[in-house]
Each structure stands twice: as C-alpha cells, then as structure tokens.
C-alpha cells in the first residue's frame, strides 16, 4: 500500500510536470503566433515612410490603403494584385498593379498623404498625394466578398497606363482642401 501511494504521488508529479511543460509550450506558441501576426504589420510599418492621413478612414480602409502604398513602394506586383476587388479579372488586376508600380513607385517610397473622403463604413474614395513626385491619384476601396466573409479591397481596373496614373480633376491641390467631403467639391 505504501508503495502504491508512492507510485501515485510520482505519477501525480509527472502529470503536473507534463501539464506545466505543455502549458508553457502552448503559451509560447500562442505568444509567438500573436507576435508573428502583429510583427508583420509592424515591420512593414517600420520599413516604410508612415502614411500621413487626413479625413475619415475606418480601420479597414486605412489598412488596405497602407498595404497598397507599401506594395507599390516595394514593387510587389503579386501582393498588390491580391488587393483587388472581384470586379476585375486576374489579368486586369495584374496589369493595373504593374501600371501603378511603374507610375507611382518612386513617389510611394517618399512621403504620401491619404485623404479619406466622407466615411469608410462600406466603401470609400481615397486620394493619395505622392509628395516627392508631385502626383495625385484617386482610389476606390470597398468591402467585397460573400456575406460574412467580406474584406476591404481596392478597385483595380486601370489596364491603360495613362488611365492608371491619371490625376483626378476634382481633387483639391492640397490634401484636406475640401474638408474631405466629396459634396464640397
């Protein structure tokens, strides 16, 4: 009987040790996962000129525009085309991505200001000001996808280079010039 009790005690310590070990491992894993996910955003943020923002972005519209500027700056055609809404074919999105990288790559590596118009609940018009290259470009971002699985995406249908880099005639010369309200134009 004493031997049995001793055996139980040892088994108990072993189980506790295993639980602690696996518990630590689980904590380490979850912690690493969380860091990994956040770190990719933070690293991308740190690796680029911060996007200056005026207007009324939502978290979703801001994030997709940051990704767009960073991908243009880095010349990442594949990553950029993956931001496209379902309105364009894969070839259209790829060509648009190539055009934007070619047209705005230099500017995107410098200071960029995004003017987020009206509000970003489901869709938003965003005008980017590339300060170094003195370029201005309008973008449409919107939630796209099946109900319950929507994500913020960018309208990418500028297969013609001239159209892809065309500056909007309606946008003010300086970001925020119309109070970020389209109706003020």
């Amino acid at each position: 009987m004493p031997r049995l009790k001793q055996s139980h005690t040892a088994a108990g310590w072993l189980a506790a040790a295993m639980l602690l070990t696996s518990g630590c491992a689980a904590l380490d894993n979850s912690s690493a996962d969380a860091r990994g996910s956040d770190a990719s955003y933070e690293q991308a943020y740190a690796d680029h000129e911060p996007l200056h923002v005026v207007g009324y972005p939502s978290t979703g519209s801001l994030l997709v525009m940051q990704e767009l500027v960073w991908d243009i700056a880095d010349g990442k055609t594949d990553a950029l085309r993956k931001l496209a809404t379902s309105d364009s074919s894969e070839s259209e999105a790829t060509k648009t991505a190539e055009n934007w990288i070619k047209g705005f790559g230099t500017g995107a590596r410098g200071k960029v200001t995004g003017d987020f118009y009206d509000g970003g609940s489901e869709r938003q018009v965003v005008v980017l000001y590339f300060h170094d290259s003195r370029q201005v470009k309008e973008f449409t971002v919107r939630l796209d996808g099946d109900a319950g699985k929507e994500n913020w995406r960018v309208l990418m249908k500028s297969t013609d280079f001239k159209d892809a880099v065309h500056a909007p005639t309606w946008a003010p010369k300086e970001p925020g010039g119309t109070g970020s309200r389209t109706n003020n134009n």
């Binding site: 489901e122 018009v125 449409t140 909007p168 389209t182």
Partner: peptide, 21 residues
C-alpha cells in the same frame, strides 16, 4: 444600412458623381 442611415437618393448619387467611379 449604409454610410448614412437616412439620406436622399440624390445625395448618394452626388457623393460619387465627380469621381472616376
């Protein structure tokens, strides 16, 4: 259920009328 819950048809149209889309 949109940007403004109560609005007018023309306000919605006007908001995007001068944009490229």
């Amino acid at each position: 259920h949109g940007l403004k819950n109560e609005t007018t048809l023309h306000e919605v149209i006007d908001r995007y009328s001068h944009t490229s889309n």
